[in-house]
């Protein structure tokens, strides 16, 4: 959609601040490049969020010290608040931290006061004027499945296993996207590229990376991943598509670790949702960073 059409539909070009987090920019920059490219197709501009840090991971830093977790998360939200832009994220962990921090600060004035007292050292003030969004919300609500369908030039003809991850939908009380038991939002986005989203055993199960389990006990963490990937393979799935940079790392690089530790080889390509959409829009495998994944893309995902 061009700029003129955007204006006709209600005014201003949408602009977002991209909160990068850690894994996206520092391990899977292909996710970053793909996301910026896909949004640009619809006239949505991405701005840097200068000086942002680790979100910090909700289940890791939240497990060590909730005070530090909240302050650092609030600082990240406030950086966007200061420039008046809504945030989007490409990691469920980042979403978990920033969205929950924003929710807490909006609900509890005493926390806001405490946070602002500390952030004032840096000349920052949280006012609560902006929204923290997951990239899935931007794709689904700002753009919409139909417009994505219309923009497909290179249909994906493959069976896909959707991996939602945990912190995009849960806790539903805080996230506010409805029941997490039977979500369809990611499946709909996958099918917009002409691919088929296939059901598989324990589809909503966790990837195993969160809560500090990956760093504390890699074998246990990989056992979750192994089960998920084996279940997808059993269902005839040809690639998995995810919504979270950390799940992405766990399922992509994790397959190499599974091979080393358990001697099992799955070779299931892992794509972030904007990488899948990017392919269907005619971007090359290389432009989307897919050629640099631990698990190589199979023919259907090479353009």
């Amino acid at each position: 959609m061009g700029y003129d059409e955007f204006r006709r539909e209600g005014g201003k070009m949408k602009e977002y601040a991209y909160f990068l987090g850690c894994i996206t920019p520092n391990r899977y920059p292909g996710i970053e490049a793909s996301t910026i490219k896909v949004l640009k197709r619809f006239g949505i501009e991405t701005r840097d969020l200068n000086g942002a840090s680790c979100c910090p991971a909700p289940g890791v830093f939240g497990s060590f010290d909730l005070n530090t977790w909240l302050l650092i998360a609030a600082r990240n939200v406030t950086l966007a608040d200061m420039i008046g832009l809504d945030i989007y994220v490409t990691c469920n962990g980042c979403y978990g931290s920033l969205q929950e921090a924003d929710h807490l600060l909006k609900e509890r004035p005493e926390l806001k006061e405490w946070v602002n007292e500390i952030l004032s050292d840096e000349g920052l003030e949280y006012k609560g004027r902006i929204k923290v969004k997951h990239i899935i919300e931007v794709l689904y609500e700002d753009i919409g499945v139909d417009k994505i369908k219309d923009a497909v030039v290179s249909p994906i003809n493959a069976k896909i296993g959707a991996h939602y991850g945990c912190h995009f939908l849960k806790p539903s009380l805080v996230r506010g996207h409805g029941s997490p038991e039977k979500p369809t939002i990611l499946d709909e986005l996958i099918e917009a590229t002409c691919a088929e989203s296939i059901d598989y055993k324990d589809k909503l199960m966790c990837c195993g990376a969160g809560g500090g389990l990956r760093s504390r006990d890699l074998n246990t963490s990989l056992e979750f991943t192994r089960q998920k990937i084996a279940n997808m393979k059993d269902a005839g799935i040809e690639a998995s598509v995810d919504t979270c940079a950390f799940c992405h790392l766990q399922m992509d690089r994790g397959q190499i670790e599974i091979k080393e530790k358990f001697g099992e080889e799955y070779n299931l390509p892992i794509l972030f949702i904007t990488q899948l959409i990017g392919l269907s829009f005619g971007f090359s495998t290389k432009e989307l960073g897919l050629d640099k994944h631990s698990i190589p893309m199979t023919e259907k995902f090479i353009r």
Partner: peptide, 26 residues
């Protein structure tokens, strides 16, 4: 400032993808 800091391999990849070599973070 990052739980997973940047490394040389990713810096190179960022450049290839047309991104800034170092992300605009801490």
């Amino acid at each position: 400032g990052h739980a997973v800091p940047i490394n040389d391999e990713t810096k190179k990849l960022r450049k290839e993808l047309g991104l800034s070599e170092v992300p605009p973070t801490t």
